[in-house]
Nucleic acid binder design. Structure first.
Length: 419
RNA sequence: GGAGGGAUGGUCGAGUGGUUAAUGGCACCGGAUUGUAAAUCCGGCUCCUUCGGGAUACGCAGGUUCAAAUCCUGCUCCCUCCA
């Protein structure tokens, strides 16, 4: 399994996207015979994707870049059911409106990575609610239910885990895998989609679709999964101090997104460059060889490229500039989070702990006090020790701002509200 | 429907009448060290506070007691076995 004929699989292979595939050879032949369609299903449980979804999105990106047609399937219908994979407890039920809102928001995130439209290789958005909502129970059971073996379903990891842990698995959730399999068949029927991709945790679910396609429609379908991307310390990707690393600007500013990548582990740099940037492999090979202090250069490139992809070049440049100012020169930058107060308010002084809470740097005043006591708090880079410290007009520099910090990495600006 | 087991802080998991804002692990936060890395070490981890304290908290609602996460009653949810 060294080289593929199709561009897509070559890219996937060389960048480390491939974990499992149902039939690489036949798939390769198909892909090199002309444009094909593939899809990845996404949940509609949140308003934005986070970096955990990024591998999948990148896979679609490359699929499109190599001349194929990607489909993004929104699980409007299946979200109502809930995927038991990797969940300890039953998911909260979302209302239809909430799901629709989420889908609208998610489309904007996709649009950063994929080109939508009606052209030959333009991406298409579909929602499985379209065909799931009108399913007739009895005909569905008769046509598709007969192809599923409970014996086999019980051996699935997602189901087994729940049973082993003595956690309830509702019939509703148990049906998730059937519906997901049905999605694949339906997409094949409607749009000639022949490939479903996803994370390795979706392997079982995807295979169900492949099998269902064969049994119910004699269709030849393929499954391709990515490895589960974890940090070298073994943690799942996507969580930081303040929660998930969201891909949408509204949920996470570009500067913070940049910082997330900038702060990755040494050991992850090469892998991440391959998966989360579009730099040529040859360039990545070079960067990967950097060691010690020099690896920081590679991290900056990773952060810049990743930010450029997800947001835009300007945001990436700004974020990089701010990071440079703040971390290497000890100054300030435009992209730091900031908050403005009225002049009159500032003349009376505002408590440091109130400012950090307003900015969201601390969750409570108690936490802010603790940080001060432990020496993490600084005003204009001067440590403060008094929990009751206030910021007033005297602290402002000539350009009308005060830099406050709650740790070596978290900085923000206080400004005067312009009338 | 019957019998038994269970629900503790972000999570896992101790605690079975008072010194328990609740042991410990993980996660997380601040510091030291460093390279905005890892590893390590130190400190912290309910909220408010004029730093004296105050207010909430062990599934939910009542009760017993000077005193309850711990005992009693009812309810909700989960698990196991039986039907």
């Amino acid at each position: 399994m060294t080289s593929f004929k199709s561009d897509f699989l070559q890219v996937m292979q060389s960048r480390g996207f491939i974990h499992q595939c149902s039939d690489l050879e036949t798939l390769d032949a198909k892909l090199s015979s002309g444009p094909q369609s593939a899809y990845i299903g996404f949940d509609a449980t949140a308003k934005s994707f986070h970096v955990g979804n990024l591998v999948q999105i990148m896979m679609l990106y490359w699929f499109q870049q190599t001349g194929n047609k990607p489909y993004t399937l929104m699980g409007g219908g299946t979200t109502k059911v809930g995927d038991p994979s990797g969940k300890d407890e039953m998911r909260k039920m979302l209302t239809d409106e909430a799901i629709d809102d989420n889908i609208t928001a998610l489309q904007n995130v996709f649009a950063q990575f994929l080109t939508y439209g009606s052209g030959e290789t333009d991406a298409v958005m579909v929602n499985n609610d379209e065909w799931l909502k009108d399913i007739q129970y009895i005909p569905f059971l008769r046509d598709f239910g007969k192809h599923f073996s409970i014996n086999r379903m019980l051996t699935f990891e997602s189901v087994k885990q729940r049973l082993d842990r003595e956690q309830s698995l509702s019939f509703l959730e148990f049906n998730y895998m059937i519906l997901q399999g049905y999605d694949f068949v339906e997409l094949n029927k409607r749009h000639d989609v022949i490939l479903q991709m996803g994370g390795s945790d979706q392997w079982g679910n995807i295979l169900n679709g492949v099998e269902l396609g064969r049994k119910s429609a004699q269709a030849e379908l393929f499954a391709l999964t990515t490895p589960l991307i974890t940090t070298s310390s073994g943690a799942k990707m996507g969580k930081t101090a303040d929660g998930a690393v969201w891909l949408s600007k509204d949920m996470l500013p570009a500067y913070d997104y940049y910082q997330f990548w900038r702060n990755c582990d040494d050991a992850d740099v090469g892998r991440f460059l391959k998966i989360f940037t579009t730099l040529p492999i040859s360039e990545i090979d070079r960067l990967e060889k950097l060691e010690g202090q020099e690896i920081n250069e590679a991290k900056k490139i990773l952060a810049f490229e990743a930010t450029k992809l997800c947001h835009d070049e300007q945001s990436a440049t700004d974020a990089a500039k701010t990071a440079l100012e703040v971390f290497e020169k000890g100054g300030t930058g435009d992209e730091l989070p900031s908050i403005a107060y009225d002049k009159s308010t500032l003349e009376q002084g505002v408590a440091f702990i109130d400012i950090t809470c307003d900015l969201g740097l601390t969750k409570s005043k108690g936490e802010a006090r603790r940080i001060i006591q432990q020496g993490g708090a600084k005003v204009n880079d001067n440590p403060i020790a008094d929990p009751a410290h206030t910021i007033s007009t005297a602290d402002f520099s000539d350009d009308g701002q005060v830099k406050i910090s709650t740790s070596k990495k978290k900085h923000a600006l206080v400004l005067v509200k312009s009338a």
